[in-house]
């Protein structure tokens, strides 16, 4: 499989690709089928790049190129997440040789479609803001006093969460997340919750721990999780989302006690 073969060799295998397409955010989706030559080691993104060069459907009609997003090609940017054979996952790490044919590609659900396989993940970033998933570097304290002290064990646990690439797969799979439940009270979703877990553990970030906990104790916060745990099953980076959710459950329990009985 790994041997270099000319890309247009007649012996080249082809795979059937079914793509759910959509011209714009409000247009009706439709399906198109393509027969794509497969190069050794091909993944869904490389297949889509090849398809862009000769965008001809199985019945010979030349059509507009399929719009899709990609950047890093090494599963760290999160841009290429889509529904592949019904599962949300990054397209770059979905190897054709390991997929069942015909391969069905659909835009990542729960996020508004921009065009074809491109979706708008603005909600994910809005929710990261809502839960204050950042660290204030300036404050009334001296941040330059000394290097942050974190035990290797703590560092190891925190590191897991720092690998989130905002691909949105966990959000797509979460039964509690989605625009269909109304624009105001939408659940922030698993990825932003995990970032609260991460920021609260940061040596400087922990100063705003209570604020972040309060943010996830409001509408659309942690309590809207229904513990279906799809998020942790589909996360391509194996981020322990449900552990974060359990830990935040404990932290919010303690925070509620503090809010009710003090000390604040």
């Amino acid at each position: 499989m790994q041997a270099q073969t000319p890309s247009d060799s007649p012996a080249c295998e082809t795979v059937e690709l079914q793509i759910r397409r959509q011209h714009g955010p409000t247009s009706r989706p439709y399906w198109q089928t393509f027969a794509c030559p497969v190069r050794p080691g091909a993944n869904v993104v490389s297949l889509l790049m090849d398809l862009r060069e000769h965008c001809v459907t199985q019945d010979g009609t030349r059509v507009d190129p399929v719009a899709f997003e990609h950047n890093c090609m090494e599963e760290v940017c999160g841009a290429c997440a889509m529904l592949i054979n019904g599962s949300p996952r990054p397209a770059c790490s979905a190897l054709i040789a390991e997929l069942e044919a015909p391969i069905r590609l659909e835009p990542l659900p729960k996020f508004p479609v921009v065009r074809d396989l491109m979706v708008d993940r603005a909600a994910l970033f809005a929710h990261l803001k809502q839960v204050k998933a950042w660290i204030k570097l300036d404050g009334p304290w001296d941040v330059h006093e000394r290097a942050p002290r974190v035990s290797p064990k703590e560092w190891q646990a925190n590191y897991l969460y720092s690998r989130c690439m905002s691909c949105g797969c966990c959000m797509a799979a979460c039964p509690q997340f989605g625009p269909q439940f109304g624009p105001e009270a939408t659940f922030v979703g698993p990825a932003p919750l995990a970032q609260v877990r991460l920021m609260n553990a940061h040596p400087t970030g922990r100063y705003d721990k209570a604020e972040r906990l309060h943010a996830i104790m409001a509408d659309g916060g942690l309590s809207d999780c229904g513990n279906a745990q799809n998020c942790v099953r589909v996360c391509p980076k194996a981020i322990p989302l449900t552990t974060a959710i359990g830990e935040l459950g404990r932290e919010t329990t303690l925070q509620a006690f503090k809010d009710l009985f003090g000390p604040h």
């Binding site: 409001a218 509408d219 916060g221 309590s223 809207d224 919010t252 925070q255 509620a256 809010d259 009710l260």
Partner: peptide
């Protein structure tokens, strides 16, 4: 007062 008490969402869910 803190938002966890001002905002009833959390308390209702826990109740």
């Amino acid at each position: 007062m803190s938002s966890s008490i001002e905002n009833s969402h959390f308390l209702l869910r826990r109740l």
